[in-house]
Design a protein around this nucleic acid. Structure first.
Lengths: 175, 175
DNA sequence: AGAAACATGTAAGGTGTTACATGATTCG
DNA sequence: CGAATCATGTAACACCTTACATGTTTCT
């Protein structure tokens, strides 16, 4: 039920509308937790029914601004201090790697080379993001920086791994 | 629809029953793609209806052994050579990190320290796995080794990151 | 004889995706 | 005035989890 906790976390910073929250998912949480518009609106309704948030203001175009209720704040704290239990792991790209041996080695190498290239791009993007903003301010900024750093290290690791993997698969010979 | 492709990949090695496949998910694919019993049996039925596999033999206790049909083999090849499109990212632990600033720094540091410890354990486990088996044999063994190496590097990276993150959060002062 | 392992299946409920549907307000 | 942005919602379908339900065969 982490969508709910993501929403609680964002609302703990400031009251927001569904539309605002959607944009936050697309920007600040893009590399952490994705959500679609229809999910956000639906979950806000359910959270209202559950007494975690309420509509604290209404604006033009039917805008509804949601605020945390004490129950919501308590639930957020509870979640943050409860150890996460290991998530069910599902990685499509790793599954492809696992079955790479079913391809001729030239094609397998192609796939690995593409992974390395994609990580080059990803690193460039994250570095742009790192340079685009001050990272010394408020609370969310500090932990935003932690997440960004993890992304950078993760991409670098994946790129190096892909290069190492290329060395494990002999070039120029059929499987 | 990667569960389907995981099943196709496993069946490309040898014909297997749902029960066999379940065990393979729990062992060889445990760090790549998890699946539950009820998913496996259900998907096998759907794949049979779709003409990708068929029941090639029946055994004791109602055992049904499934084999790839040419259509299934073709679908597997198609999938392996189609570039993966980026997966919707959802990481609960990163979400928690993102909201770490909502905790007093002592508690935030606790969480990070626990992450580092968990990765220590994970690395020990993966190294045990690395030592437990010959990694020079058939195709699945080669790519299994690639996946394992990725796990090791990923855990090491995460551990180092957690230690770095600890340095970013001042100890001993309230937020 | 009893336990462990083998073996398959169904049902209810939660979560997520995509597409559809509608309209108001602001800005140039 | 037209386009972009703001703003919310529903419906169908796909996928996953958990629990229930049942029975056979092998091993000690």
């Amino acid at each position: 039920m982490s969508l709910r906790h993501a929403l609680l976390g964002l609302l703990s910073d400031r009251p927001s509308s569904g539309y605002d929250l959607m944009k936050l998912f697309d920007t600040t949480l893009a590399n952490v937790w994705r959500a679609t518009q229809s999910q956000v609106y639906g979950e806000l309704t359910r959270m209202t029914d559950a007494g975690l948030v309420d509509v604290s203001a209404e604006g033009p175009r039917g805008r509804k601004e949601y605020s945390l209720r004490p129950e919501g704040r308590a639930e957020l704290q509870r979640w943050l201090t409860t150890p996460a239990q290991p998530q069910p792991l599902r990685s499509e790209w790793m599954l492809r790697v696992f079955f790479l041996g079913l391809l001729p080695s030239a094609q397998a190498r192609e796939q690995l080379a593409r992974i390395a290239e994609e990580e080059d791009e990803q690193i460039a993007e994250l570095e742009k993001l790192l340079g685009s903003r001050e990272w010394t301010g408020d609370r969310l900024s500090v932990s935003g920086r932690l997440v960004l750093e993890y992304g950078l290290r993760g991409s670098a690791m994946k790129r190096e791994w892909a290069r190492w993997a290329l060395d494990q698969i002999p070039a120029g010979r059929e499987p």
